[in-house]
Design a protein around this nucleic acid. Structure first.
Lengths: 120, 120
DNA sequence: GATCAATATGTCGAATTCGCCATGACCATT
DNA sequence: AATGGTCATGGCGAATTCGACATATTGATC
């Protein structure tokens, strides 16, 4: 039972925009040129109307110098091994009971976050 | 320097087979069941006649507990320990603020657990 | 208001993957 | 020879992404 109130495809478009704007400070046009993809594809990806193919995903990750796991929402760190994540190291110190409590707490956070869906 | 003119799609099929056979010792049918993909898709991927879509790639990486970067040939190591952990994966779906709170809570649990280690 | 750059949205045919199913090959063990 | 397990291959229609292009929309500056 995973917390899936945010779908993988939704995470992807947010990660892509975050990497392009905050991390690399590029325009869509600049990323398009760097990755060799048409600008409209970048826009579609960030709008969530398309999901990248095998090749497109590779080009995006290369152009942005981030891991594909970050773009797919599998890792929080744009760069490198998740094992280096201090949070992961803390996680490994937990016993089974503590892990269950942490999971419950995260579910609570996710639900509270969902209630703030009436914005904009 | 080593000449590496192997196309990304060729690397992928080799990585997929290596992860399934050597790393996890699963049959194609077993991986199909674990990932929720049809067995024929696994065969096509390893034959190189198809390349996985966005969703299929995620399912494969989850089922095999490896990074997508490894499957795509962007890194040399499978390094899937953290990404394989469901708790860690769920944490990636939280926003920054919630993630920070979850981290604090886990640190608290870890420290509390340390204090109870007076006995050996 | 006018202009311009950046982004959003949609349309088109072509190409690719999708799940599903059938068939054949290969290789053991019986 | 026959069986069973594993994998390879390809056809089928449906769904999706592809690149390319057109056209709004937004936001900031003048």
């Amino acid at each position: 039972m995973t917390i899936e109130h945010e779908k993988p495809s939704d995470i992807f478009k947010e990660r892509l925009r975050a990497a392009r704007e905050s991390l690399r400070q590029m325009s869509q046009a600049a990323l398009a040129k760097e990755s060799g993809l048409p600008p409209s594809s970048i826009a579609h990806f960030e709008a969530g109307t398309r999901k990248p193919s095998f090749d497109s995903l590779r080009k995006l990750a290369n152009a942005l110098s981030v891991t594909t796991d970050f773009l797919l929402g599998r890792t929080h760190n744009p760069e490198g091994a998740a094992e280096a994540d201090p949070l992961y190291r803390d996680m490994q110190k937990l016993n089974d009971e503590n892990r269950r409590q942490a999971a419950d707490f995260m579910r609570f956070l996710a639900e509270k976050h969902d209630k703030e869906a009436g914005k904009k």
